[in-house]
Design a protein around this nucleic acid. Structure first.
Lengths: 323, 323
DNA sequence: CTGAAAGCGCTAACAG
DNA sequence: CTGTTAGCGCTTTCAG
């Protein structure tokens, strides 16, 4: 079981190692039958090109880094999966910041030396910090926008408008906006979208918060919510919405009987909760593909192109006709 | 911003590159003051040792692979996090099998060439297939045992006995066991544990299933469950339990008022569901540490040591006094 | 303790 | 189209 290299198979065939190398990396440069035989014996000998050597020689790692702020947030696993699928041959190195935004710069620094490019999901760090951390490494930021850095975001605006119209159609006129973490790009965007919608509809919007984007944050929000006479509420995300529902139900308020609740992200939780959550879903696969394409472009030195994808409102059980 | 290598700093100091190299990899072999100066200028120049080159030279990748069957299963993200933390310097390459057990061998093959060792969470593939796929790569299997392969498992037996005693104390005597996927090591272990407990307690155990380890599987289980006169049920995991609760509630059956439900794994869901789930938690951090330690041992050629950790029963709201 | 030299396995000009 | 020849940046004997 000795290691099989391009030399082993070159020798076996009486050709030069570089020919073997070419047979793999630039097949068009080698005569069809030679290539054929190379591939065959490679297969036969169980040849596995040594990625490390290739990397050293080419200077490219064949890997992309994916930094997520909190892998235990149910929003990210599906995204991670989609990115891996979209990465195809490239190996993706996932790094979880464990919810500690302050640690991200050093994590990014470590990543930089191991990858050709970085996909960065970092909602909380400031533009400054991030720009400095990524330096000259080709980077695409996800779900936020930073001047001068390529990005792909899922724009929830129109979906949230649709969600607003949906509850409006159900008769709701006093609506609560449970704001998410301040300084979060996504939270800001969602807040703006809902304000904009409310301004154009005959509804009274009550802003509460900010609340932490967590179940506990939702519980807290529920308390504040109960002190208002609103009949429907937009939560920052599904996890928060889950806490809101739990808090309301515990206080004897029925969902959607007495109050309607709208989540965001369409995580697994939204589909298994009782009641299932009306929410806005993200096109993860599309996002992943666009992100990878953008990263490849960035790697080959192209311009920073910001892309926007649209979220989709998914009505479920947590929204109902006003009491 | 030219690349800084051991040569740059060797030149800068008028020493040989190998000395610089040693200053990092075998500091004890270089005189204190030289080492000192090397480290200083390395710092000053922002030297980042090129991992790829190091790998080529040493033959070790400094990376470990972590294969999970389904990253979207909420059980895994916390484990991934724990493993990353336990891996310290080593970079962990996460591979998600996307729920397709059949694809695992080829994923493992790809991994093998990129890492020093593999942590393998693969509940469904057969021992044969796995043994063949890992070949001679140092491997630790997680939550299952394979003859001849190092492993670390979380043994739920005593925790499930505690759970049984708990519902027994609450007055339950007719108990349902909702079996998980057949052929799954964990499912088998849990089933055995509950049977064993039931055999030693004055309860009547009704086995139902097997059901898919999913929300839908739980819904299906709920239906079957309603056709029995049992008052408490063990679900395979929390996701299943969630489906069971949803199915029961939808049928007008209250949890825990009319029936008690016990989950397993203690995923996020268990804590945010209403009612919160009584379940068995896994010591992820311990598991991760033991797994990494075992892998390091395996890498240095030591024997395959199977380790067993204990789960912990966590009573919550989904279990209550019998009606 | 440090310098010299030989690779690790592959790629990439450059000739032929 | 294919062989030659240099490396990629670091580690590691082997001398001294």
């Amino acid at each position: 079981m000795t290691k099989v290299t391009i030399y082993s198979i070159a020798e076996e065939l009486g050709v030069h190692a570089s020919t073997v190398s070419r047979a793999f990396s630039r097949p068009e440069l080698v005569k069809a039958d030679v290539r054929q035989r190379v591939l065959e014996t490679a297969e036969r000998l169980g040849f596995q090109p040594n990625r490390t050597a290739r990397r050293l020689a080419t200077g490219s790692t064949g890997a992309v880094g994916l930094l997520v702020p909190d892998i235990t947030n149910p929003f990210f696993p599906p995204l991670v999966r989609a990115i891996q699928a979209a990465a195809e041959e490239a190996t993706v190195i996932l790094v979880d910041a464990e919810g500690a935004a302050a640690a991200e710069p050093s994590l990014i620094a470590r990543l930089r030396s191991q990858v050709d490019g970085i996909l960065l999901a970092s909602p909380l760090a400031t533009d400054e910090v991030l720009r400095e951390a990524i330096g000259s490494t080709p980077t695409v930021v996800l779900n936020r926008e930073i001047e001068g850095v390529a990005s792909v975001v899922c724009d929830m605006t129109s979906a949230l408008h649709a969600a607003g119209d949906h509850v409006h159609d159900l008769g709701h006129r006093r609506i609560a906006l449970l704001a998410g973490t301040v300084g979060s790009w996504a939270a800001d965007q969602r807040r703006m979208a809902i304000r904009m919608w409310a301004a154009g509809a005959d509804v009274e919007l009550t802003e509460l918060g900010p609340f932490d984007a967590s179940y506990e944050g939702g519980r807290e929000a529920a308390e504040k919510l109960l002190a208002t006479d609103t009949t429907a509420a937009f939560a920052f995300d599904d996890l928060t919405a889950c806490g809101v529902v739990a808090g309301l139900v515990e206080a004897g308020c029925r969902v959607p009987g007495d109050r309607s609740v709208i989540g965001c992200d369409d995580v697994l939780l939204a589909r298994v909760l009782t009641p299932t959550l009306s929410t806005v879903s993200t096109p993860n696969e599309r996002l992943a593909h666009v992100a990878m394409a953008t990263l490849r472009a960035a790697t080959t030195g192209d311009e920073a192109t910001p892309s926007r994808l649209e979220g989709l409102f998914v009505p479920r059980q947590s929204t109902g006709r006003v009491a």
